[in-house]
Design a protein around this nucleic acid. Structure first.
Lengths: 194, 194
DNA sequence: GTTGAAGTGGAGGCACCCCTCCGCTAATGT
DNA sequence: ACATTAGCGGAGGGGTGCCTCCACTTCAAC
């Protein structure tokens, strides 16, 4: 209900007033971030409460549904991504795009929940996706206009490609990097007809 | 313990003797194939038994552990992939490689269990992976030697890239195809230094 | 047919998870 | 210091899944 800054969607959940309660709230968010990272959207809520060192009841008071909790985590990640897009605006087109994609990877590399959510649908996830796209899309557009990236691919395509590639497990970081490099070369290539 | 044909690994599980029991065995395999496809490795065994129209006890007699069941499904898929590699040997290098990768995608597109298993480790999964690599690797090698594919990427890299890209959800098949095309262009591109 | 062995299926014990409810604890304002 | 009340946490009911066990069924060999 608060006014919302463009590109920074808000969630219905409210941080509590009392100091101890705020500590718990934050601990829950942090624990949830980790748990969703490790186990995806299906992470056990009781486990999250345990990690946060609070009772299950406290989790449910702060986040009445699993969706509320997930949304709260998600919105934080997305806000960081939006901020990153601003910061990188100064770099040359291709470098800016790649740098932003790497931040994106920085999330989903460890946090497959975010990547699962590319498909899921809820009022607020949609709004988050829009914010994220609004932040990142111009970077792709600029790289395309200046001829650094092929033009027959959309931002959504690109994000899914990157999400897919980096969401998988790899033998080591070097391999992940190699594969990502190949895909980025594909993004740079002239479209091929055969 | 039986002799194993090269490229066609075997499983410890044995198909039962009696006709009715064989029907159940086959129904279980089929149900498991579907269930693993939909829910990944964590599919409910009780659900698989239900789908197959048999009691849970029957499932456990045929496949004492979840791993046994999964292995049995997996080995079937891999054998098909190995066969495909033989069939495609006649095509030109690049076409053969791409065609085989498409078959590979044909699996993991619907069956994410196979793709999860690229990482997992067990005696027999390892042996399956070896068989699959033995079948597919020559296709990449040939494309590389003839200059159709870049040489700074390994077969394992390629498979993981493809698995990652196609394991994700897409808005529609056209998008999946577009993204796959970009990645394949990357595979064809000269390595880039910047 | 008869009969023995192969095969069946589901009840039941255990573990985990979801979510609600409410008696208790302790932070805060005065 | 004390009262007020926000906040706590975990017991408990319901659900699902894992796996074992064994009384029963049915195939197939004779």
């Amino acid at each position: 209900m608060t006014d919302k800054a463009p590109g920074h969607p808000r969630v219905a959940v409210r941080r509590p007033q009392r100091a101890d309660a705020r500590r718990n709230f934050d601990a829950l968010l942090q624990a949830a971030r980790e748990a969703f990272a490790e186990h995806g959207t299906d992470a056990s809520l009781e486990d999250i409460a345990r990690r946060a060192g609070v009772g299950i009841g406290t989790l449910y008071r702060n986040f009445p549904t699993r969706q509320d909790l997930f949304d709260s985590v998600y919105v934080g990640e997305v806000e960081e991504l939006c901020r990153a897009a601003d910061e990188l605006a100064g770099l040359p087109p291709w470098e800016a795009l790649v740098a932003w994609l790497r931040r994106f990877v920085g999330y989903i590399g460890t946090k497959r929940a975010l990547y699962e959510s590319l498909n899921r649908d809820s009022d607020m996830i949609r709004s988050c996706r829009e914010a994220m796209y609004a932040a990142g899309e111009p970077l792709l557009a600029r790289a395309q206009e200046t001829g650094y990236a092929r033009s027959d691919i959309g931002f959504d395509d690109l994000l899914r490609m990157i999400a897919g590639i980096t969401g998988t497990g790899y033998a080591d970081d070097a391999q992940r990097e190699r594969v990502l490099g190949v895909a980025l070369d594909g993004l740079r290539a002239r479209p091929s007809g055969g």
